[in-house]
């Protein structure tokens, strides 16, 4: 009995892996980000996000795995705007993972905070626990006006009513890259082979994605930038996204 409890505890501890296989990490340079929202549409297209309609938006039931938050500073005429793309931070010590009663959200060997739709029973606890508010609940089974459904990405499930969903770091693209690497003499995935939809679209190249366990990867180098910081770091969630703060000329 006690070993069972211990085992349970160890699984309950977020990030129970001694070492990740890959550690997928993203950096976002706020000094390059212009708030254009190309990433938001890219995500919607790639991940089959529903078109929820005006009424649902009014009830704050929209689903956007990545969104641009905007913060004003100062008053007219010395007023400044700061944009920040907000998506699942893939925390290594994720509060959401400790909350789920059915283990529908867990950490995998690649450092990803993942969500299993089939297992989710819709308690929405994880969304309450998430300090970044990047988990979205399907209050309805959304449909697409014919023939918009022809666009749906066959590599990504279409979610149904009653499940929680969030950014996966485009895990389907990671899967394809791993698959190609395996075909190529079982090698490791190379830097730059996995590009999530948001990172791919970014017109200012503000986002960089890669394996932070590889010290030579572009993302590892970006993480060392002195402008780097993690959002709400004081909560000790250990996010996998490093932001680079705005600079001054």
């Amino acid at each position: 009995m006690s070993t069972f409890v211990e085992k349970l505890r160890s699984y309950r501890k977020p990030g129970y892996y001694d070492e990740f296989d890959y550690h997928w990490t993203m950096t976002i340079d706020l000094d390059r980000c212009t708030g254009c929202e190309a990433c938001v549409v890219a995500c919607q297209a790639e991940n089959n996000l529903p078109i929820v309609g005006e009424e649902r938006f009014a009830q704050s039931r929209e689903i956007k795995w990545i969104r641009i938050e905007r913060y004003w500073e100062g008053e007219y005429p010395n007023v400044k705007m700061g944009f920040i793309p907000m998506l699942c931070q893939q925390c290594d010590d994720a509060p959401c993972e400790t909350a789920c009663p059915v283990y529908a959200t867990y950490h995998n060997q690649d450092g990803l905070n993942t969500q299993i739709y089939n297992r989710c029973i819709g308690t929405r606890t994880c969304a309450v626990y998430c300090p970044y508010e990047v988990r979205y609940f399907n209050w309805f089974t959304y449909t697409w006006d014919e023939p918009l459904e022809q666009q749906l990405n066959p590599d990504v499930s279409v979610r149904e009513k009653g499940v929680m969903e969030k950014c996966t770091f485009c895990i389907q693209r990671i899967r394809i890259a791993k698959d190609n690497a395996k075909d190529d003499d079982e090698r490791r995935v190379r830097d730059g082979e996995v590009v999530p939809a948001c990172v791919q679209s970014c017109p200012t190249e503000a986002m960089v994605f890669g394996n932070s366990k590889d010290p030579g990867s572009k993302v590892s180098k970006m993480m060392k930038n002195p402008r780097g910081y993690k959002v709400l770091e004081e909560l000790n969630t250990s996010p996998s996204i490093v932001y680079l703060t705005k600079a001054h000329s």
Partner: peptide, 30 residues
């Protein structure tokens, strides 16, 4: 399924804006 920038095109260099990607909504517009 998805519109991305053409990486060898000198104007877009592999990137697209929100409008460009929403071109699929034009194609499959009900």
């Amino acid at each position: 399924k998805k519109i991305e920038g053409n990486p060898v095109h000198p104007v877009s260099q592999g990137r697209t804006c929100a409008r460009g990607q929403a071109g699929l909504n034009a194609l499959y517009n009900p």
